Simulated scan of single mutants.
Amino acid sequence: MTDIGGFEIHGTAVGKETSIKLDEISILGCPETIKAIGEFLVKVADRMICENLEHMHLQDIFYNFSSSDHVDIIALNSNLILKV
Results as ranks from 00 to 15, higher is better:
residue 83 K to P: 01
residue 31 P to R: 03
residue 5 G to V: 08
residue 7 F to Y: 12
residue 34 I to T: 09
residue 16 K to M: 11
residue 39 E to A: 04
residue 24 E to P: 04
residue 65 F to W: 05
residue 26 S to Y: 09
residue 28 L to K: 14
residue 61 I to K: 03
residue 20 I to T: 13
residue 14 V to L: 15
residue 13 A to V: 10
residue 37 I to S: 08
residue 74 I to P: 08
residue 21 K to E: 04
residue 64 N to P: 00
residue 19 S to G: 09
residue 69 D to T: 06
residue 29 G to V: 02
residue 57 H to T: 12
residue 15 G to P: 07
residue 81 I to G: 03
residue 32 E to P: 01
residue 17 E to M: 11
residue 11 G to R: 04
residue 67 S to T: 13
residue 73 I to Y: 05
residue 36 A to H: 00
residue 11 G to N: 01
residue 37 I to N: 01
residue 43 K to A: 08
residue 3 D to G: 13
residue 81 I to Q: 09
residue 31 P to T: 02
residue 13 A to M: 11
residue 49 I to T: 01
residue 14 V to F: 14
residue 35 K to D: 06
residue 19 S to Q: 13
residue 40 F to A: 03
residue 30 C to I: 11
residue 76 L to C: 08
residue 47 R to L: 03
residue 9 I to R: 06
residue 70 H to Q: 02
residue 68 S to F: 08
residue 70 H to N: 10
residue 43 K to F: 05
residue 53 L to C: 02
residue 70 H to Y: 01
residue 45 A to P: 01
residue 13 A to S: 14
residue 55 H to N: 12
residue 10 H to P: 05
residue 68 S to E: 15
residue 42 V to A: 05
residue 43 K to I: 03
residue 4 I to W: 09
residue 74 I to S: 07
residue 28 L to A: 10
residue 41 L to F: 05
residue 31 P to F: 07
residue 40 F to P: 00
residue 39 E to I: 00
residue 34 I to S: 05
residue 47 R to H: 03
residue 54 E to T: 09
residue 41 L to H: 00
residue 4 I to P: 07
residue 73 I to W: 04
residue 33 T to S: 11
residue 23 D to G: 12
residue 11 G to P: 01
residue 33 T to H: 08
residue 75 A to I: 05
residue 34 I to N: 02
residue 21 K to Y: 00
residue 23 D to F: 08
residue 69 D to P: 03
residue 12 T to K: 15
residue 73 I to S: 03
residue 58 L to T: 05
residue 39 E to H: 05
residue 66 S to E: 10
residue 38 G to S: 02
residue 44 V to I: 07
residue 3 D to A: 15
residue 79 N to A: 06
residue 24 E to C: 08
residue 4 I to R: 13
residue 45 A to I: 05
residue 57 H to K: 15
residue 83 K to H: 09
residue 62 F to P: 00
residue 14 V to I: 15
residue 57 H to D: 15
residue 3 D to F: 14
residue 12 T to P: 06
residue 30 C to V: 12
residue 2 T to K: 13
residue 19 S to D: 07
residue 66 S to H: 09
residue 17 E to Q: 14
residue 74 I to F: 02
residue 26 S to I: 11
residue 30 C to G: 14
residue 9 I to M: 02
residue 59 Q to G: 13
residue 54 E to W: 02
residue 53 L to M: 04
residue 36 A to E: 04
residue 84 V to D: 13
residue 46 D to R: 10
residue 78 S to H: 10
residue 63 Y to C: 07
residue 79 N to E: 10
residue 83 K to R: 13
residue 56 M to A: 12
residue 60 D to C: 08
residue 40 F to H: 01
residue 3 D to E: 15
residue 2 T to V: 13
residue 42 V to M: 10
residue 13 A to D: 11
residue 49 I to V: 07
residue 75 A to Y: 06
residue 14 V to Y: 12
residue 68 S to V: 09
residue 61 I to Y: 04
residue 75 A to F: 02
residue 55 H to M: 11
residue 69 D to K: 13
residue 52 N to A: 12
residue 58 L to N: 00
residue 45 A to S: 08
residue 76 L to V: 12
